[in-house]
Design a binder for these strands. Structure first.
Lengths: 338, 338
DNA sequence: GTGAAAGCGCTAACAA
DNA sequence: TTGTTAGCGCTTTCAC
């Protein structure tokens, strides 16, 4: 389909130099005389020559491509990360190749796809792998960095934030507010973030002698969280406070409570989320939440991946960044005894 | 860095067949005997062989890769499209290579990058090119589909929705509601969507004898729209209705009006947006807006691009899909005389 | 500094 | 059906 298919050979012929001289001219750190370079550049311009990245990749064994894998872009938290990561890699001459994982398993097929595509690294956004899969990628020597999930394999780097601490704060804070029936709106039950946030939450409640009254699963998705909230509050003894494992679900809960149950937030129910997506700060929502340092996370993850791509062997790192409670208007004021 | 670098040659040796037999085994429509296939597959499994996509691309001149270019993922409208498009292409064995355009010009560099990368097609999300750039891509025979922008070049396909009609409806509807000072919150002034929506809007107002009282620019971004709204309503004679060129800006305006100016929406000010992002339907916002058929847009665009990638020559198409007014709670009830 | 030559791993004739 | 052969467009020794 290419109308034009100008090769370095064509340029060489026109410029009256060898084909390797053309190659050198387009190689960052080659030695070419100024006169040769000019002849080559002139000929290139005339013919509209562009070096074929694929041919280069084949021989240099470097595709300058990173695979990004994720389940969904519904959560703005991840589309933000995608943009940040993409711009970072682009600045280094790398590009992101998108892989969306199918909702239902078959991650193996995606992995196979990734390996074949000769990417130099893999960035997993809120996706994990099992040991076998991790070992497979490792066998191929492809560095992997996982964001916001843990993996049961030593050879893979992870970047996340302190989910336990965030959950702990949420639990303790809600308890300190004097709430009596505190509920949990969970994410994906199998995810490490869900488990760590829940564990921290329970511990935080416990630290003030409270327990979790009731919980439901929202799968980190808006619609599922709406349903879960309806179940949670249809009981005869509904919660008076809720910790949602991410902001998207917390916002869903607020919508349902305010507009379907006619409950006041925070008057009747306090709500805490997790992530601190931009929307959480909108005055309509004013969501009290646990901020993840998303800029730092993506910075660490991309730098880590680049380092591992560049260097032969490198110790994988596990980075856990601190979270920050963001007190806003979705939790009642701390007036009672703490 | 690759620890493993198993080639088809290695597999051939172990399987006791020729290298091309291995190649055939991994080619979708090749003729290999069952016995050879089994020998090859066994050897492949043992060695962990994966065909090298890059080598294949070099010879078939088909990278099975599509470039996606966009400015930003801030608007969920586009992250949604990205996911849809990516899944569509993935299902056909294609993958998306991400290119984020720098905010300030220099699109030429990105284009150069794209051409070198040997993608088979380009999907522009809310990005346009000038004639020279379009001609350049065309020279290389790379098909391009533009979503949500127009381009002044016949050889490129476009998919969009009826921005003029949407704007027209917004203008006429606000006027019909009896509003007296109707304002416009514009997007990127140079964008075709901005211009078409504004033109339709003015025409719609005019159809009921109204004009646009005041307008500001929000660049399709949340923060800019907040600023623009502040300017718009700081005057002594502020608007009593507002048409924003997208939902993100309409939502920004609502936040500012309600929480900074203590104005009621729709009591004091009616607001209409454009796009119908999921958030617009959240009860907190209940944004009256003009729905773009995003599913259909991405379906048309991806199908069009695939067709052009597959076929040698194909007439570029200009597809304009109908929009749908979504009446919700951000506009006052039509009680007065229309 | 430059050109000739040898591949990178694979596909695609072609002949057997 | 199978193996042999010739490249895809480029980078990279290696003499000169």
């Amino acid at each position: 389909m290419k109308r034009k298919s100008v090769t370095s050979r064509d340029v060489a012929r026109l410029a009256g130099v060898s084909q390797s001289a053309v190659s050198r001219t387009f190689s960052p750190n080659a030695k070419v005389s100024e006169s040769t370079r000019r002849k080559v550049m002139d000929a290139s311009r005339e013919l509209g020559y562009r070096p074929n990245t694929i041919a280069r990749s084949l021989i240099t064994r470097s595709s300058r491509t990173i695979a990004v894998v994720t389940y969904s872009m519904e959560n703005p938290f991840y589309s933000f990360m995608l943009e940040k990561a993409s711009r970072f890699f682009q600045a280094q001459g790398y590009h992101l190749l998108m892989f969306f994982a199918p909702p239902s398993g078959d991650f193996d097929a995606v992995l196979d796809d990734i390996i074949r595509s000769q990417v130099e690294g893999v960035l997993l956004l809120a996706i994990t792998m099992n040991q076998r899969q991790a070992g497979l990628v490792d066998d191929f020597g492809i560095p992997v960095v996982i964001i916001n999930r843990t993996v049961d394999y030593a050879g893979i780097s992870q970047v996340g934030s302190d989910n336990f601490q965030g959950g702990y704060w949420a639990g303790r804070y809600l308890a300190s507010l004097g709430h009596q029936r505190i509920g949990f709106l969970g994410g994906l039950p199998d995810s490490s973030t869900h488990q760590q946030r829940e564990a921290g939450f329970l511990e935080g409640l416990l630290s003030l002698g409270q327990t979790c009254s009731v919980s439901e699963i929202g799968n980190y998705r808006y619609e599922d969280a709406c349903q879960a909230t309806r179940r949670l509050f249809s009981s005869s003894l509904p919660p008076d406070a809720l910790f949602a494992a991410n902001d998207l679900m917390a916002l869903a809960a607020m919508e349902i409570l305010r507009y379907e149950f006619a409950l006041k937030v925070p008057g009747d129910v306090s709500i805490i989320g997790f992530d601190d997506v931009p929307m959480a700060a909108w005055p309509s929502h004013a969501l009290t939440t646990v901020r993840q340092p998303v800029d730092m996370m993506i910075k660490k993850a991309t730098e880590l991946l680049m380092k591992q791509v560049a260097q032969e062997e490198m110790q994988p790192e596990h980075i856990i960044l601190p979270v920050t409670p963001m007190l806003r208007g979705s939790t009642r004021m701390p007036s009672r005894q703490p």
